[in-house]
């Protein structure tokens, strides 16, 4: 399958493509071409109707997702199936129905090849007992197939990158919560994955630590070219770091879009203050399917849906003999959209 809706990118290729360069000094021209990602790049993750059952409980119910690359946030309340989805992608859980590919590899039959090319930062506190940070990260690299010398060198680099350079000879068991989150990230990155799954990476972090962790994640996909799938129930984290979002609820997919599109598609929110019979005005809006929320000082928040705009609001007010004294469009936050999507389901 091919990616859809992915952005255009500028690429370069040598005009001599197809035959070997004769020497390092041979002259060749560079052709700059505009390549549309649509139809050119394979999907990073492609799932179709995945169902995971634990006994009679459906943890994932026919979930489909397509991830073309970049960064995606898995959103959902606790128990929505976010971690289960990540574990399915890693091959820890075998789907009852459906099919899926990660980096072009089948999740049922090529789990080892997938794990060779992805990194996973688990949600809960985990480490390998009796090791300092360097040994731990180097060991993780060796488990992935790196040679001892390479993995040791790489461990030092990665620990510096995640901000544990000074504490790298300390036993991991003595680390604080924030440091443990970083070391989990380090072990996920040590073998140079193309895709990384982060399960609640900002859990238990103080505000400063949280910002640093999010900056790090942003750098991972934005600066280092590693695709990121971030699972969290903290919506601002996803809004800050990710470009796409997949909303899960009770094991079902509710929405999967670019975050900006998700915000736009859910309608426009206005803050307004009126003079006149507010009850009939509210009733009319509710009949049109637009939720109204009363705030302080007579200010109300109206979410206009089904293509309605501010002109519709003004027309309704006029029809009901109401004066609108104050009308300000509000920027939708991901939290508003999320609550709306969950509420609709």
């Amino acid at each position: 399958m091919q990616s859809a809706g992915a952005p255009c990118v500028w690429g370069t290729r040598a005009a001599t493509q197809g035959r070997p360069y004769e020497s390092n000094y041979c002259y060749y021209s560079i052709v700059v071409e505009l390549r549309l990602d649509i139809g050119c790049r394979a999907l990073i993750v492609d799932l179709e109707s995945i169902t995971i059952e634990f006994g009679s409980q459906k943890a994932l119910d026919g979930v489909s997702m397509q991830f073309a690359g970049g960064s995606m946030g898995l959103l959902g309340p606790n128990g929505a199936g976010k971690s289960t989805l990540l574990k399915t992608l890693l091959g820890f859980l075998t789907p009852k129905t459906g099919r899926g590919k990660v980096l072009g590899l089948d999740i049922r039959s090529q789990q080892l090849a997938i794990r060779q090319r992805v990194g996973y930062m688990p949600e809960n506190d985990c480490h390998i007992p009796g090791m300092n940070a360097v040994s731990f990260v180097a060991y993780a690299g060796q488990l992935a197939g790196m040679k001892p010398k390479d993995s040791l060198q790489r461990a030092h680099e990665i620990l510096h990158y995640v901000g544990l350079g000074e504490a790298r000879y300390r036993n991991v068991e003595t680390y604080s919560g924030g440091m443990k989150q970083r070391i989990k990230l380090a072990q996920a990155l040590v073998h140079g994955p193309e895709l990384i799954f982060l399960d609640e990476p900002t859990n238990g972090l103080d505000p400063k630590g949280r910002i640093e962790m999010l900056e790090l994640i942003r750098d991972i996909w934005n600066g280092k070219g590693i695709h990121v799938i971030l699972s969290t129930h903290l919506l601002p984290d996803v809004e800050w770091v990710c470009r796409d979002a997949l909303v899960l609820h009770q094991g079902r997919r509710l929405a999967a879009q670019k975050i900006d599109d998700l915000k736009q598609s859910s309608g426009a929110t206005f803050e307004c203050r009126i003079k006149g019979d507010g009850d009939s005005f509210r009733e009319q809006l509710r009949l049109l399917g637009c939720p109204v929320q009363d705030g302080e000082d007579g200010v109300m928040r109206v979410l206009l849906v089904n293509g309605l705009g501010s002109d519709s609001l003004l027309r309704i007010a006029r029809d009901h003999g109401i004066q609108i004294r104050h009308l300000v469009p509000l920027k939708q936050s991901l939290e508003d959209v999320f609550l709306q999507v969950i509420g609709e389901s």
């Binding site: 890693l90 060779q116 996973y120 809960n124 985990c126 480490h127 390998i128 993780a140 197939g145 996920a188």
Partner: peptide, 16 residues
């Protein structure tokens, strides 16, 4: 000790 430290997730997230 691996079970206590939740280390199995680390092991099995690698090609092991």
């Amino acid at each position: 000790n691996d079970l206590k430290a939740n280390a199995l997730q680390i092991y099995f997230s690698k090609p092991i």
